[in-house]
Nucleic acid binder design. Structure first.
Lengths: 201, 201
DNA sequence: CCACATCTGTAGTGAACACTACATTTCTGG
DNA sequence: CCAGAAATGTAGTGTTCACTACAGATGTGG
């Protein structure tokens, strides 16, 4: 028995295009017509490959998380908690205003509020954001153990804080803030982490 | 000539209901059917009174800004820049987790990304957020003139920063963070403003 | 080269959407 | 009390949406 006709498009390339549409218009704002056009395929191919619109979003998120995860590894490799925060926030200022991508962050632009029938899309995005926050928290726990952060500091709260600033910067970027404005926010934000850092002696 | 049949519903009460629907589902996620049901009226009454869906959103935003504007006046009345930031961010932590309202902030939940045909909704929301930022900036300019903020500080950057943290907290609230988590973020965030404050002598 | 499995393009499907035509009701000014 | 003005409820309008039936195309295993 044969194995059927082979797929004529590259799923990863198509996913990159879909990712961009979701990024720019959000889950609900993106239509199947826009997605299929951007992906260069017809609806039946999309549904055969990804199940439905939400399946396509999840696949796009997986791809996004994969790319972003590699970068997060670089971020948490910074030598101190302060440097982790700086590398992350300054990096976000630049990534979120990179003209190669839509402005902002897919994990925010994808959809913060959704209509009936898509209620779990915001949850899905929140879960992905939480992964980054967990990674930061683990790094800050280690920083505290190393004596890099003050004994009174709360690594989980710090991670939440950096994550919150990231999200806020993403929204600003998507509504037109330029790179310099975001860098200023990042620079100020880092000072709160600095305030939690042990004095250098 | 007569003045016509009087309206049978209270426009402000109806707006409050509409505001809640937009807040919970976003502009695109909210349907006319949900809105009219929440408002207790039929579509023709809605269109006669507010023009169209976007007109209703703007009216709801006006009402939201009015309520929120009064609170912002209280915020900027705090004695120091640091206290302004604290009053604002701690207040936001509580407001955005107030069970009387949907979680988060209407100016964010309303819609960060929208589909074709509603592109200016995100701009509209951004413009309203910018008003708050401007109010903060003016307050920080004064704080710098008063010697409350360091001569090297940048009031506009500080205002952008506080605004960004507010937005980030809103997104966190809408995705399930509880009041205590938000308070922790606020507490950390205030320390960056503190770092820009002149030493007390 | 044939049976079968899978993909592809065309052309729709029913449902949900924002919005409205229209007849009716309820008011005011004269 | 009557004429005109404006709001209301019913019942739609056309459009767009996510999704799919189907027939033909293109591959593999025997």
């Amino acid at each position: 028995m044969g194995m059927g006709r082979p797929r004529e498009f590259d799923a990863e390339v198509a996913l990159d295009q879909a990712m961009e549409v979701f990024w720019r218009h959000g889950y609900e704002g993106a239509t199947i017509a826009q997605l299929t056009e951007a992906m260069g395929i017809n609806p039946p191919s999309l549904y055969a490959c990804f199940g439905n619109k939400e399946g396509l979003l999840k696949a796009a998120l997986d791809r996004y998380s994969k790319l972003r995860g590699a970068w997060m590894d670089v971020v948490v490799a910074a030598p101190t908690a302060r440097d982790v925060a700086e590398r992350m926030l300054i990096g976000i200022a630049e990534k979120q205003t990179d003209p190669a991508n839509p402005p902002g962050c897919l994990l925010v632009q994808g959809g913060i509020a959704c209509g009936t029938g898509s209620e779990n899309v915001p949850f899905e995005l929140a879960a992905r954001r939480a992964q980054n926050e967990d990674q930061l928290r683990d790094r800050f726990v280690r920083a505290k153990a190393d004596g890099d952060l003050k004994p009174t500091s709360d690594p989980a709260a710090l991670a939440r804080y950096v994550s919150a600033v990231s999200v806020g910067m993403g929204v600003m970027a998507s509504s037109g803030s330029d790179r310099e404005a975001l860098r200023q926010v990042a620079t100020v934000a880092v000072q709160a982490v600095e305030a939690q850092s042990a004095d250098r002696t």
